[in-house]
Amino acid sequence: MVERVTATDATLELIEKLKNRHGPLMFHQSGGCCDGSSPMCYQDGELRIGESDIHLGTIGDSNFYISKDQYEYWKHTQLIIDVVDGRGGMFSLEGPEGKRFLVRSRVFTEEERAELKL
């Protein structure tokens, strides 16, 4: 089955490093401005998930959530979470590592969309 969210090998390596330091993690993509425009990484449970959030999947055994509004924009694409050098959100756990998480995406194929029932 096709996944709505995946991660690059570099991202999975950084997730493992962060999990070893902080314990279980979670991710949230709000689509807001500033810090909210990047996927944010938190200790699991640190961010309260509400009715306006959707569980998109898991990366590195960590739950990944997206706001409903942002999901409506991206529901036809697979999100690929990558990591690059630089400073990300000040509240996201990867910041002190000199890294930031980044969303890349690709449009689902016709077959994948049928599988997902978009």
Score class of each variant (00 low, 15 high):
1 M>I: 03
2 V>H: 08
3 E>W: 03
3 E>C: 09
3 E>G: 12
4 R>I: 02
5 V>F: 04
6 T>Y: 03
6 T>F: 05
8 T>N: 09
10 A>Y: 02
10 A>R: 09
12 L>W: 04
13 E>K: 11
16 E>H: 05
17 K>M: 06
17 K>T: 03
18 L>G: 10
19 K>M: 10
20 N>V: 01
20 N>M: 08
21 R>L: 06
21 R>K: 11
22 H>A: 11
23 G>L: 05
23 G>I: 01
24 P>T: 02
24 P>M: 05
26 M>E: 13
28 H>C: 13
28 H>I: 15
30 S>A: 12
32 G>C: 08
32 G>K: 08
33 C>R: 11
33 C>D: 11
37 S>C: 14
37 S>L: 07
37 S>H: 07
37 S>N: 13
38 S>D: 13
39 P>N: 09
40 M>C: 08
44 D>M: 14
47 L>T: 07
51 E>G: 07
53 D>P: 06
55 H>K: 09
57 G>S: 12
57 G>F: 07
58 T>N: 11
58 T>Q: 14
61 D>I: 02
61 D>P: 04
64 F>K: 02
65 Y>S: 11
67 S>H: 13
67 S>T: 15
67 S>M: 09
68 K>F: 10
69 D>L: 06
72 E>Y: 08
74 W>D: 15
74 W>G: 15
76 H>F: 04
76 H>D: 15
77 T>G: 12
78 Q>Y: 00
80 I>R: 06
81 I>L: 06
83 V>Y: 00
84 V>Y: 03
84 V>A: 14
85 D>W: 00
86 G>L: 01
87 R>G: 03
87 R>A: 13
89 G>V: 00
90 M>C: 11
90 M>E: 08
92 S>W: 02
93 L>R: 00
93 L>W: 00
93 L>T: 00
95 G>A: 09
97 E>V: 01
100 R>S: 08
102 L>I: 15
103 V>I: 12
103 V>L: 04
104 R>H: 12
104 R>N: 13
105 S>Y: 06
105 S>L: 08
106 R>H: 03
107 V>F: 04
108 F>V: 01
109 T>M: 04
111 E>L: 02
111 E>N: 01
113 R>M: 12
114 A>D: 13
116 L>S: 03
116 L>W: 01
